[in-house]
Write a protein that binds this DNA or RNA. Structure first.
Lengths: 269, 269
DNA sequence: GAGTGGTCTAGACCACGGA
DNA sequence: CCGTGGTCTAGACCACTCG
């Protein structure tokens, strides 16, 4: 018995092979918004443990191909949501554009880790304005703006979230913006963020940190976290719709056009 | 027995709590480059199954706090590597800057999915130049440049990778660049990329897609993938070193300064 | 070869969504 | 309420690194 031949290239983990098969199946037999069979059935169908199947689904979710919700099911996702970050510094000063929703506005001691980036003393007071980025009435990102009280001091202590936020933004607009510095990295959602994003804690997110400079010092620091599975950050001009279908936005109800089989690679029983 | 009291807020998954404890431990008792105890010991120490511990470690790795290597162990990671993407369009045309290494240069049919973005026919020929981004002699990213043969036609078929790549880049430099469009999203590493990055397939990566426009049409398309755990994308001016320690770069050998305890929250036996 | 992280299994229970 | 995905367990074996 020669050890040669008979053995294939293999060395490919089962979960990865499974992912590949699922990608093909999804692309050929499913359309955005359609539900997949449940995990137990899928695992059985492919002859793997549920944990292994879940590892494959996890990858597909991180790629933005699937969307899973506890209690509900697993559905095929539409194209990613473009988050326009423009080469220039809009995006903040200006709370207009719909699809954004104020969460709260507070004034408290700087979160420590951010003191250095904001250029303030360790426990200096800063205003914090949080808002939620929506897409198809689904939260996809949390944007958090920090402004040192030294920059915008005149904000009455007792004041509702909305008024407070509006006031800070108004004041901020009078500062001539010199420029900004921005970084993007991956992180995980803290429980609070996770809750706002309706995801379990530890969900992968894209963290965009923007530092706004005015009059030689840091006037504001924005820390925005976007769901890594559903968002794509767009700089400069947004990429045109590359790809085939002009159809198929984020899968909501009312988008099960070309069903097909019920998903199958093995025969049941 | 009233159901009130005695029960805590809980509702926090065990893996998340574990993550929190590990973060504190790492930050207070470890320094970059130091090794953690192995997974079996850690799991036992915290009284959880190895799978649960691994879920916590996974998160820490995604956050860039840990670095794990099969066969070797788990070590505390240093700060993330900044990948400068500058607001403007350098980065490509120009293979100088060290820390980058040519992988190969080929000419073949366009990968299908990219045809539209490149503005070429489905099976048109394109040049592909791949290079590796290094940091501390560790591959952290794969940058792949596609150039339609229609843009740079005169490249002899049989020619080594290096010469071919150099030729394409030289020609490209003669095209007056009009601008670019860029997007960032999360993806997973295909087996090939994973191999070049010395990671298992499916590793989370930051995918940067840049489209270069010249004379009204797409002159080149760059698709770069960076290890999500070790990289941070920097736009505009790089963020200055915010934080405390000016010390502690990526943990290589020769960086075990202030050891401490041997890690412990529970007593053994 | 010893020790490490990576993969996979089979089962259990929990928390949430929606009918 | 039932069905879904989310969490957790205990164990096994494999593939790699390094001394």
């Amino acid at each position: 018995m020669a050890t040669t031949a008979t053995v294939e290239v293999a060395a490919e983990p089962k979960y990865w092979h499974l992912r590949t098969v699922l990608v093909q199946t999804i692309e050929s037999e499913f359309t955005a918004g359609q539900s997949l069979p449940n995990e137990r059935d899928l695992a059985a169908r492919f002859g793997v443990a549920r944990a292994t199947l879940r590892q494959a689904l996890e990858q597909l979710e991180l790629e933005g191909r699937l969307s899973r919700r506890r209690g509900a099911g697993t559905v095929v996702a539409g194209p990613r949501v473009d988050i326009a970050l423009g080469t220039q510094g809009e995006g903040w000063p200006g709370i207009e554009l719909g699809d954004r929703q104020l969460v709260d506005g507070t004034t408290a001691a700087v979160p420590g880790r951010l003191a250095a980036q904001l250029g303030v003393r360790p426990r200096a007071m800063v205003h914090r304005i949080r808002r939620r980025q929506l897409s198809m009435r689904q939260a996809v990102g949390i944007e958090c703006l920090y402004v040192p009280r030294a920059i915008v001091p005149r904000v009455p202590e007792l004041l509702g979230d909305n008024r407070r936020a509006a006031l800070v933004l108004r004041h901020l607009r009078h500062h001539p913006l010199q420029g900004l510095t921005r970084s993007v990295e991956v992180g995980v959602a803290e429980p609070e963020e996770a809750r706002l994003l309706e995801r379990p804690p530890g969900t992968p997110v894209l963290v965009v940190t923007t530092s706004y400079t005015a009059q030689g010092r840091t006037a504001a620091l924005a820390v925005a976290t976007y769901r890594a599975d559903t968002c794509r950050l767009a700089f400069g001009d947004v990429l045109g719709d590359h790809g085939d279908a002009t159809e198929g936005r984020r899968g909501g109800p009312g988008a099960p056009p070309v069903p097909a089989m019920a998903m199958g690679t093995r025969s049941a029983s």
